[in-house]
Design a protein around this nucleic acid. Structure first.
Lengths: 172, 172
DNA sequence: CTCCAATAGTTGAACGTTCAAGCTCCACCG
DNA sequence: CGGTGGAGCTTGAACGTTCAACTATTGGAG
């Protein structure tokens, strides 16, 4: 229940325009990517990200909590997702040696193969809908903007969001 | 099923960094907004957007298809959502006079009241997580980037995405 | 005028996510 | 060393979205 009344700093026209542009653009972009992946590889973008992060990790293995942080998903969401991926045979769960509460998720050979199949189409879509439309400068600006937002999150919520390193071309 | 092999233009390091930053930042931002709205006003961000768009329309009324375009949602998604909102008494459906296939959605007084209650907290969250962290210049860059993306979508898919005008301070 | 493709909207089932609860195990304090 | 708070993960139900039908209506083309 909002308390405010009177003291609200509404968005200024330029901010409102920026906000509507971002909301609209990013929603359409995300749904385009989701549809492309669903159509050509039978998985949502979120699952692709899980596979991609795993593919880039040492031994293609990550602890559930690290994988959750790397994909910006809740533990619950990740747990459900990995169950599904495990059902497909794309990911394998095992017990964490040093911490018996822990679970390790490993990308299987089959999962790797699926990812390799999916990657080119996905990258093409990302290019087509985003990077091929932007200048080098805009790419740099995009990075700065979202790094700033991420830094803000970290300051607020205490350290989270361990945006993993490169991930390279997911299917190297 | 991807065809490619060999000819894929992978993302360059700067693009990869931009991509991961954007994906992570926007996901965390969106989920922060969703949680704030759910907690303080009992509705997801998508529903807020529907109410906001209606509040800004003449007679607080929009045709379903226009409302769908304005909120970047599929007709199906909107139809389900409006059913829910109608159940709460926040939106009212009526038949379109000029086109008997059409349906009009109108924001009720009660819906307007709920939106007015929700708006300050939502705007505060948007500021806190985004605009208060960015410079004026970055706000302008953000706008340009996403307008470019939207233009790309329109070129590709043929005209869609009628990003409505201002929407003002949703609760004027 | 009659057809017929296209447009507008809805519906139900399948899917993925959130939320709250629960379980196991670790860590640390006394 | 027993106890307790918290971390790590999972589960099931509720929720919102997608997908694929399906109905009803419109706007031409012949």
């Amino acid at each position: 229940m909002p308390v405010d009344e009177g003291s609200t700093r509404w968005l200024e026209p330029e901010e409102m325009h920026a906000w509507l542009s971002f909301i609209a653009g990013s929603a359409l972009l995300e749904s385009a990517l989701d549809r492309q992946l669903q159509r050509e590889s039978g998985m949502p973008h979120a699952y692709y990200q899980i596979l991609a992060m795993l593919s880039d990790a040492p031994r293609r293995t990550l602890r559930m909590s690290d994988l959750a942080a790397a994909t910006q998903s809740s533990q619950s969401r990740l747990s459900h997702a990995v169950s599904k991926l495990e059902g497909y045979g794309w990911v394998h769960r095992s017990q964490c040696p040093d911490d018996r509460r822990g679970t390790l998720a490993t990308l299987t050979e089959q999962g790797m193969a699926v990812l390799r199949e999916a990657a080119p189409g996905h990258v093409r879509a990302v290019r087509e809908h985003l990077f091929d439309l932007l200048t080098r400068e805009q790419v740099a600006q995009l990075t700065d903007i979202w790094q700033t937002v991420l830094a803000g999150m970290r300051d607020r919520d205490g350290v989270v969001a361990t945006t993993r390193t490169v991930l390279g071309e997911a299917a190297g």
